[in-house]
Design a protein around this nucleic acid. Structure first.
Length: 570
RNA sequence: UGGGGUGUAGCCAAGCGGUAAGGCAAGGGACUUUGGCUCCCUCAUCGGAGGUUCGAAUCCUUCCACCCCAGCCA
């Protein structure tokens, strides 16, 4: 019998390890409570999805709770419109915050009272320095800061001044409330950080009630504490702020304060995640809007056809650590293919049609071919697809002079038409002017119809097709990476100039096909429905789609080993 | 230059002193009425250099690289 433990422990990320330890020690009475705290100043993207999945996922795994909280402490940057979209996106991803939808703005009075406490205890003061002077006084990496001349005002004077700030007696930028910590701290965040500033602007939730607003560093720990948060998960750039986070809570003598834990934000290759660049693309007209299917926004991914399951699975599998990393977008593609392979009905669509005429097939015959909806799902059943003398096949499925290893259709060659017959190419005709192949002729072998004994015969290749008579026209939008290769770390930062950024844009990030043909069963497809166009990829009905004008978005192509063979032979 | 972080394969990522998990990508093969799916195989000595130890990715020393911080943004 084994003396050693042979249980293979599922690896847990470092945050779960901290939670495990805390629960073991009965810290917070064993409670686990997290929160996802977006600022309502933009649309959510897949980087936020990582954080959402992390926070809600951790709560779920540990029998805890996760709040949705809007960190709306800056009325000059925030807006109502974002709140709705964020709520919709988090819900769409499949998470539930129960009745715990909170707003930082709901705590403004309490935060103000806590600020009064700090002032009374001599831990905060009103400073009259201008923004420029505060900057000067802060010092630099190598030089300590200088103390503000207003640093030693009495608590009484500070109280009066702070109250007057609240009452609107002073103009924007003329006074702030500062924490009295240490102007010579090597951590610049501790050099008497600003706690409150004056912003005479209407707030989307509190209206004109306030004209002073708390800074993130002051508000966030309080919000967490008020809500009973135990583990406050945020991204790496806040590591330097942790001492301040802790300072606020301990200066107010709060017992069992929440703890801030930082992890590395998600970077994805071949796309952009920074708010600034996303906005640049939308406002500059480089994309059609925040839900452009090329963007990594949640709304863009949704419109593109990504499923919440695939996104959650992706977020789960990329892991959580503190190393700056750039995840290859191919991994995201893998996750959506994996999900859709199980779920998406197969259907035939010809993106670039080439006419195929079966010379020995009766002109007026229509056969209803039985087609399996999904070989990966026995429950999916089957459907009938009409087969006629004149068909369309994919232009690239015929080659006059086939390259090596090409086993699709070519003069004299045989292929099977999926769920139908084996055909043999007898001839083809060219357009007299362009020289382009205009139609291909073939003969079929009646005994080889799928399901019949003669169908046993094997040929090298199987092609998809649509009936010329019954096919529906469709617009198909082929999406590709937003950016050309940018998987270098420096490309992920927000620093470079716009010219460099524009040069990285993939000029072929979308290609629109207007003459595609799809099988008639797609007539009633509705926006959001997803299909596998056999041998081509996964597609989703776009919101622009109408009954008389079908529009499909390519979510992702199928893996294509033929394409690889071609590429490697060059 | 001060402070805070991080360095394990092309990309993520386990590992916590006992002889490098897993996934993606890549390459090879089997199967196939999707060149899809599925299955099988291949693919690293752990940023560098010293040291401690029977034994080091794991401990110590030192060096190097990269990321973040000088908003009254979050």
């Amino acid at each position: 019998m084994p003396t050693k433990e042979i249980i293979n422990k599922e690896p847990v990320n470092f945050i779960q390890a901290i939670i495990d330890e805390d629960r073991k020690n009965n810290k917070y009475g064993g409670r686990v409570h997290l929160r996802f705290p977006p600022e309502p100043n933009g649309y959510l993207h897949i980087g936020h999805a990582k954080s959402i999945c992390l926070n809600f996922g951790l709560a779920e795994k540990n029998n805890g709770l996760c709040n949705l909280r809007f960190d709306d402490t800056n009325p000059s940057k925030e807006d109502r419109e974002y709140i709705e979209s964020i709520i919709q996106d988090v819900r769409w991803l499949g998470f539930d915050w129960g009745d715990r939808l909170y707003y930082a703005s709901d705590y403004f009075e309490r935060m103000y009272q806590d600020a009064l406490t700090l002032i009374k205890e001599g831990k905060a003061y009103v400073c009259d320095l201008s923004p420029e002077e505060i900057k000067e006084y802060r010092g630099s990496f190598t030089e300590p800061g200088k103390e503000s001349p207003y640093r030693n005002r009495s608590p009484e004077e500070n109280l009066t001044l702070f109250q007057q700030m609240r009452e609107g007696k002073f103009e924007d930028g003329t006074r702030v409330l500062r924490a009295k910590i240490d102007m010579s701290s090597p951590n610049l965040n501790m050099r008497d950080p600003v706690l409150y500033r004056i912003i005479k602007k209407s707030h989307h939730r509190t209206g004109a009630k306030w004209c002073i607003y708390p800074m993130y560093d002051y508000a966030h720990p309080l919000e967490d504490y008020y809500e009973g948060i135990t583990h406050s998960v945020c991204t790496l750039e806040f590591e330097d702020h942790r001492p301040l986070y802790d300072w606020v809570l301990s200066s107010l003598h709060f017992p069992e304060p929440p703890q801030q834990i930082e992890f590395a934000r998600l970077n994805l290759s071949n796309t952009v995640m920074s708010k600034r660049k996303l906005r640049f693309l939308v406002e500059g007209g480089y994309v059609s809007g925040w839900d452009d299917p090329r963007l990594p926004t949640i709304s863009g991914l949704r419109r593109r056809g990504y499923t919440p399951e695939a996104i959650r699975n992706f977020c789960e599998r990329i892991g959580v650590a503190k190393t700056n990393s750039v995840v290859d977008i191919r991994f995201l593609e893998h996750c959506i293919r994996e999900d859709l392979n199980k779920k998406a009905p197969r259907v035939m669509a010809v993106l670039n049609p080439l006419k195929l005429i079966i010379d020995n097939y009766p002109a007026d015959l229509i056969e209803e071919m039985d087609c399996e909806n999904n070989p990966e799902d026995a429950e999916a059943g089957s459907r009938k697809v009409p087969f006629t003398k004149e068909l369309y096949i994919e232009r690239e499925d015929f080659h006059e002079q086939p390259p090596k290893k090409y086993f699709r259709l070519s003069p004299g060659g045989e292929v099977r038409l999926k769920n139908a017959y084996i055909i043999k190419c007898t001839n083809f005709v060219r357009d007299e002017i362009t020289g382009e192949v205009k139609e291909v002729h073939c003969i079929y072998a009646p005994e080889t119809r799928s399901g019949r004994p003669g169908a046993e015969r094997r040929v090298k290749s199987t092609l998809h097709w649509v009936s010329a008579k019954f096919a529906l026209k469709a617009e198909i939008r082929l999406y590709d990476y937003l950016l050309l290769d940018n998987n270098k770390e420096e490309d992920q930062t927000d620093q470079e100039d716009d010219h460099y950024f524009i040069k990285q844009l993939n000029p072929k990030s979308v290609e629109i096909l207007n003459d595609s043909l799809v099988e008639p069963s797609l007539k009633s497809a509705v926006a959001g429905e997803k299909f596998q166009f056999m041998r081509k990829g996964y597609f989703c009905v776009d919101t622009d789609s109408r009954a008389d004008h079908l529009v499909f978005n390519r979510i992702v192509s199928l893996r294509d080993s033929w394409e690889k063979i071609m590429k490697n032979s060059q």
